[in-house]
C-alpha cells in the first residue's frame, strides 16, 4: 500500500482533536491562574510596600512556588491535561517545566543530574524569551528615534 493512501485512511479513522473545546478549557484554566496571580499581587500591594510595578516580582516568585508544590504532588500534570496551553503559557508552566525536569533527573545526582538537566525543557523558553525581548526592544528603540512613538 502506498504511504499517501495510508495517510488518507489514517486521517479518516483517527479522532480529530476538539479544538474549540480545548480553546475554551485553556481560556478557563489560564484565566483562573492569572486571577489567582492578580489576587496575590493585590495582597502584596495592600499589605507590603510594593507598588503595582514592583509587586510583579514577589507575585511571580509566589506563583512559581505554588506550581512547584503542585508539580511535586503530581497535580500540575492533571491541570495541564485539562487546560493545555492555559496551564503551559503562564509562569506556572515554566515553573512546572523546571521542577519536573529536576525531579526526573534527581537520580543522577545533584550536579550532572539536577543541575545539568533542570533547564532541559525550560532552556529554550529562556533563550527565545530573551531573544524576542531583545528584538522588541530594538524595534521600539528605532521607532522612538524616528519619533513614531514615545516611551
Amino acid at each position: 500500500m502506498q504511504q499517501e493512501k495510508y495517510a488518507q485512511i489514517e486521517k479518516e479513522l483517527s479522532p480529530k482533536p476538539p479544538i474549540m473545546k480545548n480553546v475554551i478549557k485553556a481560556f478557563l484554566i489560564g484565566g483562573s491562574i492569572c486571577l489567582i496571580g492578580q489576587f496575590i499581587a493585590l495582597f502584596y500591594i495592600t499589605y507590603f510596600d510594593f507598588t503595582e510595578r514592583t509587586a510583579s516580582n514577589p507575585t511571580v516568585a509566589t506563583m512559581i512556588f505554588i506550581a512547584m508544590l503542585l508539580t511535586g504532588f503530581g497535580l500540575y500534570k492533571k491541570i495541564a491535561q485539562f487546560g493545555g496551553a492555559g496551564a503551559a503559557v503562564p509562569i506556572t508552566g515554566f515553573g512546572n517545566a523546571v521542577v519536573s525536569a529536576s525531579i526526573e533527573h534527581k537520580s543522577e545526582g545533584y550536579v550532572l543530574g539536577v543541575g545539568g538537566n533542570m533547564f532541559k525543557l525550560a532552556g529554550s523558553v529562556i533563550l527565545f524569551g530573551v531573544f524576542s525581548a531583545f528584538v522588541v526592544a530594538l524595534i521600539k528603540t528605532i521607532l522612538v528615534k524616528f519619533g513614531v512613538v514615545s516611551w
Binding site: 500534570k77 495541564a80 512546572n96 521542577v99 525543557l121
Partner: peptide, 17 residues
Amino acid sequence: ERQFRYPVEYGSQKGAT
C-alpha cells in the same frame, strides 16, 4: 516516559491517540 517523552511530572496535554 522519561526515555521517550517528557519528565513524568511535566504538564503536557495528551491527545486522544
